[in-house]
Amino acid sequence: MPEISLFKEVSLHHYLILSALIFSIGMIGVMMRKNLIVILMSIELMLNAVNLTFVAFSYYLNHLDGQILVFFIMTIAAAEVAVGLAIAIAIFKKFKKVDIHFFERLKG
């Protein structure tokens, strides 16, 4: 296993480590927060972390397919936000709050 110098030169692994950290932050946000919209935002953070990985691989392996995947992920993320916010508005209309707890009461 070769030695790497973290502070001298930026390589692929710096980007991967950064991406892993952002992903974990997003995951903690999804698990811990109450507010539905903040949970959606944390999901956006996780998706962004994945995007960063793809772009970094695409740059360092000199292969453009990674950027196409980022393109697809962004489209799906935008669509997911639209649906998520519509659900949030429906919840807010019903309970005047957007807590994740109210999902327990969604029956029929």
Binding site: H13, A20, M31
Partner: peptide, 29 residues
């Protein structure tokens, strides 16, 4: 518990990144 599990996942990811050093043939543009 939740934070511990997130930390576990982070550690796992970082460990695998650490072990993947040198696996790729890097040729940046």
């Amino acid at each position: 518990l939740k934070i511990a599990s997130a930390g576990l996942l982070t550690g796992l990811l970082l460990w695998s990144i650490h072990y993947s050093i040198g696996l790729f043939q890097l040729q940046p543009e």
